[in-house]
């Protein structure tokens, strides 16, 4: 179990802001349990592709089943938990 304010959470938020060009959003404006897609942060399908690339590039995780994405990319918390469990770097 990782702490809700771990370095990984902060690192993930910073990577998402940079990778998805969310210039107007600060780290503390993204809640750990806030949905990343739809009503939450408002990300879309192109962002999902960017997040898949981010997982592989930064953490060495290759998603083989695209359906997994829905659960993994639900929030910062779900992403961090998945990375913690599956990271190879």
């Amino acid at each position: 179990m990782i702490s809700p304010m771990s370095d990984l959470h902060i690192e993930l938020k910073a990577s998402i802001i940079e990778q998805l060009n969310l210039e107007d959003i600060n780290l503390d404006e993204i809640e750990n349990d806030e949905p990343l897609f739809g009503d939450g942060l408002g990300l879309d399908s192109i962002d999902a592709l960017e997040l898949i690339v981010l997982l592989e590039k930064d953490y060495g995780i290759k998603l083989n089943d695209p359906q997994q994405g829905k659960e993994i990319f639900n929030s910062i918390n779900t992403m961090a938990a998945f990375i913690e469990k599956n990271r190879t770097k």
Binding site: Q19, I46, L49, E50, V53, E56, K57
Partner: peptide
């Protein structure tokens, strides 16, 4: 990336 992973947005 030596022809590795590419950001899809700029390609699209």
């Amino acid at each position: 990336s030596r022809e590795g992973l590419l950001s899809p947005t700029s390609f699209i």
